[in-house]
């Protein structure tokens, strides 16, 4: 994966496949020298046995073939960048993933297009509550899809063309605002 945002999209697909109703994504550009993201879901979780072997590419829950590369990819990427991947999970409660990369490591992938990752998740999962927090220094952007949907009303969601275009512009605006404000202080 060329971007951290693509890893995030891939991992949230796991949350969705695990029947999560609520997913929290926290992205922090600089946490004491580390780039860190955390995904916390309320999906069906994993047994201690599955959790223990989840980094093995020949372990997967899917039925089409016996290979699952999502977790091994992100584990490799964090380790190559002097970071770590921590997964905690409890059956019927949910899963929390924390991925950390040394911020200035040569092998750390760029964050990439976080707005695209968020809008694609929101447009195709209308019933998911998706909470996003993007932090950089003292600047922060928070978005809660439930709060936005309350304004939007029951009958509409983010897949509506005009709502989708609004979301696209709004996310880009807010993310670059956080970035610009931080860069102005550096």
């Amino acid at each position: 994966m060329r971007e951290i945002a693509l890893h995030i999209l891939d991992l949230i697909q796991n949350s969705i496949a695990a029947s999560s109703k609520k997913v929290f994504l926290d992205v922090n550009e600089d946490e004491e020298g580390y780039f860190v993201f955390r995904i916390c879901d309320d999906g069906k979780g994993m047994s201690a046995e599955l959790l223990q072997k989840i980094r093995d590419p020949f372990v997967t829950t899917r039925l089409t073939r016996d290979i699952g590369l999502g977790i091994p990819f992100i584990a490799m990427s964090t380790e190559q960048s002097g970071g770590h991947l921590t997964i905690r999970s409890k059956e019927d409660v949910g899963t929390t993933i924390e991925a950390a990369f040394l911020r200035d490591h040569l092998d750390r992938p760029p964050l990439g297009d976080l707005a695209a990752t968020i809008r694609v998740i929101l447009a195709t999962n209308p019933d998911l509550q998706f909470i996003v927090r993007y932090r950089y220094g003292n600047n922060c952007f928070e978005f809660d899809s439930l709060a936005a949907k309350e304004i939007l009303g029951e009958e509409m969601d983010f897949s509506f063309p005009e709502v989708y275009l609004w979301l696209d512009a709004y996310l880009k605006q807010e993310i670059s605002k956080v970035r610009n404000e931080q860069e102005a202080t550096e």
Partner: peptide, 13 residues
């Protein structure tokens, strides 16, 4: 863009 725009979209759509 602000979240308030969604109110207007709701009416419009």
């Amino acid at each position: 863009k602000t979240l308030e725009d969604l109110k207007a979209l709701r009416e419009k759509l």
